[in-house]
Design a binder for these strands. Structure first.
Length: 805
DNA sequence: TAACGTCAGGTTTTT
DNA sequence: CCTGACGTTA
């Protein structure tokens, strides 16, 4: 295509400066609604079109899949439009549909497909799919390319199991939830278990945390699984430890763009830094020739510090990468302050709120739209009254304004449980609505079961999933059978599947259930054989059928079973959809995709439905009319954030994010009393309400106009510390395996066999005895043949000893 | 061995 | 309010 600068004429001066930035570092401080996506997409187009940058050398990292998709689409349109002009001298949307499609698909092939656009997690998975086999962790653990990704609830149950079963600890003192959280935080900071202990001064609690972390990691490795944090952390370590890989990926990405830079955590920052600088620490030695690092963010919209996002990374960009000159002289910062989204009064409210934060880059949103209709503060009697007000108002506005439909409205809240009364009211009045997030489709039993089947097919080392389905539906593989299989697996230090898939071993160990175990192994293997050739849809059909999962539910005939079947069907729909939208439609890719996709990604803005979601989910979105509900002390700000200024500031940013979602109108509300967490309580209006200038707001209540004693609620320092005291637990871990192993090895058991003996098997050939199992009833031996490991019964197996050690 | 009932405990935000 | 853990029963 020809060079073209004309399309840049849609930009304001600051945007233009940002887009035309070519090499070196650049921070774009982009306020809400200031057109940062436009700056990003135009810049990418400009790099490709006018600087002849190869799309595959551009890396653009976003925070959500939705943002990534949006960027791709917008880039696609920029190019398709330019091509339409060049080829037909017409804008794209005036062309016949077939021509449009053809142009778009050409752009897809040549531009957007080779571009690296995605979330940190998505990009990292891609890197890991190439290189994870070159990684070895500090304990020499390795992962394979068919790894599976576990979700948060899986992670928590693993931790819980370690705390209560393996280490025999009191789960009151070591709440699995909190332990998991701390492990996650440690990983996000790039810490190893010992470093986590050190961070806790190596006290009892710290040592236990480290121990759980260590065991957790061992189990993930044993199952060939990764959690979300690993997806970032492992690439970082890989790049730190492997110079040639680092230089490979460094030279892959010439131009790196990061969206929502304020949301990056330490490991994500390290990843970006490594890729940009090739691991060179001295700033003077960085080579920016034909390279750039372009980050866009807004410290005022940093709302993920609970997930270790650290907006000081953004605040430090100037020292880190930039020219470190004061703002008047710097050539590495551009501010986008013009707001194209909201009415002037809405922006005034937002500005007045956020200026109360100390930690920020000074920035004022400047309106391009005029003053709008009043911002209304509704004081409800209780949460039902609040809900009624909202829904009535929605109905009324739709009646009065035919250009509005349900899709014009969003109801935003701090916590998911707040959706309930509003949902009830919407149902009562037959108003179309959708809830984003909160509902946990993938947490349902039947969905977890179905996915466990798929995971085992792809990654049979995933013992957690394997155990989940081995007897679901009931196929007569009981606890005793499973335990003896597990015991053997543990003894041989191999995944359970390795035992299960081997008929001989199963026949030896499982006794009467052997036939059933073999049958089970067979249905899994039949699917595995098709992995290369069949699509995810085909394999799903086959396994749901051959496992009798569907049939079992159908037989039950209850309403609940009926419901489960529906959900399975819905899952099938997601697979079909995936199949339609992706060229790469293997089962592996499907599993990765659902692990990394969220509810938010399915949000269709054009759908005619009121959107209900949390303030967190709303970031990056905009609506004509926004209701922010439950502005009460304890909800917004959340009671767990009342403890210090830092967290209060984050709550204030959350409130700011909510306000700045609104284009035309904003409604704020609170209820005088609310049923929450099992009891009905009197509430206080949010402290943030006192920061709203009165003249910007109209209200039905008195809570607002009365300037209540503003100090006393703020200075109360609730000393509710979540930390556990770290003393008193007497339990110490007993490592049973090593003890029993030692016993076995010392006792010279059964007949003449001993570990290390070489034997000859009638059908498997020569092998070496690696283990001897002895239970009170039976003795088994494990033999390593050239074809693999097998467990046999020495009394029955056709073996003879060749030599002993 | 499974299914059922009772009880207590824990409820922020999510890639 | 929901979930999960645990004990009882068939």
């Amino acid at each position: 295509m020809k060079q073209n600068h004309e399309f840049l004429s849609h930009l304001n001066p600051s945007q233009n400066l940002a887009v035309k930035h070519f090499c070196g570092p650049m921070l774009v401080v982009a306020g809400a609604g200031s057109g940062k996506t436009r700056a990003l997409t135009y810049r990418i187009a400009h790099l490709i079109l006018n600087h002849q940058v190869n799309p595959e050398n551009i890396l653009a990292v976003t925070f959500t899949n939705k943002a990534a998709r949006e960027m791709k689409e917008r880039i696609e349109h920029i190019f398709a439009n330019l091509m339409a002009q060049e080829k037909y001298s017409k804008p794209l949307d005036l062309l016949p549909e077939s021509d449009q499609k053809q142009l778009l698909s050409r752009v897809y092939k040549t531009i957007t497909k080779p571009l690296w656009i995605g979330t940190f997690h998505r990009i990292c998975v891609r890197i890991l799919r190439y290189d994870i086999d070159k990684y070895q962790d500090e304990k020499k653990r390795v992962w394979k390319k068919n790894f599976s990704i576990i979700d948060e609830s899986d992670a928590q149950s693993i931790v819980k199991n370690i705390v209560t079963k393996k280490l025999n600890l009191d789960d009151k003192k070591f709440e699995p939830r909190s332990v998991r959280y701390q492990i996650s935080n440690a990983k996000n900071k790039g810490l190893y278990p010992q470093q986590l202990a050190a961070e806790n001064n190596n006290n009892y609690k710290g040592r236990i945390l480290a121990e759980v972390y260590e065991e957790y990691q061992a189990q993930l490795a044993a199952n060939n699984c990764l959690d979300f944090d690993d997806l970032i952390l492992i690439p970082v370590r890989l790049l730190q430890e492997n110079e040639s890989l680092l230089s490979y990926w460094h030279s892959q990405f010439h131009h790196i763009l990061v969206d929502e830079y304020q949301d990056t955590n330490y490991t994500q920052y390290q990843l970006i830094r490594l890729l940009s600088t090739n691991g060179e620490n001295q700033k003077e030695l960085w080579n920016w020739q034909n390279r750039s690092l372009f980050v866009v963010g807004d410290a005022d919209q940093s709302i993920y510090s609970f997930r270790m996002a650290d907006f000081t990374i953004l605040l430090n960009f100037q020292q880190d990468f930039g020219d470190n000159l004061p703002y008047e002289d710097t050539r590495t910062i551009i501010k986008l302050e013009e707001n194209y989204r909201s009415r002037e009064n809405i922006l005034a409210l937002a500005n007045n709120l956020i200026k109360n934060n100390i930690q920020r880059i000074e920035k004022v949103l400047k309106p391009t739209k005029t003053w709008g209709e009043e911002i209304y503060w509704y004081q409800g009697e209780n949460e039902e009254d609040e809900a009624r007000f909202i829904v009535n108002k929605i109905q009324q506005l739709m009646r009065e304004n035919p250009e509005l439909d349900e899709g014009s409205f969003a109801v935003l809240y701090r916590i998911n449980t707040q959706s309930r009364p509003i949902e009830d009211e919407l149902i009562k009045t037959n108003t179309l609505y959708k809830i984003v997030g909160g509902l946990k489709f993938y947490d349902r039993k039947e969905i977890k079961d179905a996915l466990a089947y798929l995971r085992v097919i792809v990654n049979p080392d995933d013992t957690v999933s394997l155990l989940r389905i081995i007897n679901t539906p009931r196929r007569g593989i009981g606890k005793t059978t499973i335990n003896s299989l597990l015991e053997a697996a543990r003894e041989l230090n191999m995944p359970l599947w390795e035992i299960i898939k081997d008929e001989t071993s199963v026949n030896t160990i499982a006794g009467r259930a052997a036939k059933k175990v073999n049958k089970f192994a067979q249905i899994i293997q039949e699917c595995q054989e098709k992995l290369e050739t069949a699509s995810a849809v085909d394999i799903f059909h086959q396994i749901m059928d051959s496992s009798n999962y569907i049939e079992d539910l159908q037989k039950q005939g209850t309403d609940e079973a009926e419901n489960r079947l529906e959900n399975i069907n819905e899952l099938l729909n997601t697979i079909v959809l995936f199949h339609e939208n992706n060229e790469e439609n293997s089962l592996e890719e499907y599993l990765i995709s659902i692990s990394l996709n969220s509810d938010l990604d399915n949000l269709n803005e054009n759908e005619k439905a009121v959107s209900l979601m949390t303030l967190h989910s709303a970031k990056g979105l905009e609506f004509k009319i926004v209701f922010m509900v439950g502005l009460e002390q304890g909800i917004l700000p959340h009671y767990r954030s009342l403890k210090d200024d830092f967290t209060i500031e984050e709550e204030r940013r959350l409130c700011y994010v909510g306000i700045t979602r609104a284009q035309e109108r904003l409604f704020l509300s609170h209820a005088k009393e609310r049923f929450l967490w099992g009891s009905r309580d009197i509430t206080q209006p949010s402290q943030f309400a006192k920061e709203f200038p009165e003249d910007l707001i109209t209200t039905n209540g008195n809570s607002f106009t009365k300037k209540t004693r503003s100090k006393d609620t703020q200075t109360q320092n609730t000393n509710v510390q979540v930390q556990q005291t770290s003393n008193g637990s007497k339990s110490r871990p007993v490592i049973n395996e090593t003890i029993s192993k030692r016993n076995i090895n010392q006792t010279n058991l059964s007949q003449d066999f001993a570990v290390g003996d070489r034997i000859l098997h009638k059908s498997f050939g020569e092998g070496e005895i690696t283990h001897i199992f002895k239970s009170n009833k039976k003795t088994h031996i494990a033999i390593k043949f050239s074809t693999g490991q097998k467990i046999v019964d020495p009394k029955l197996a056709p073996i003879e000893k060749i030599s002993s050690t």
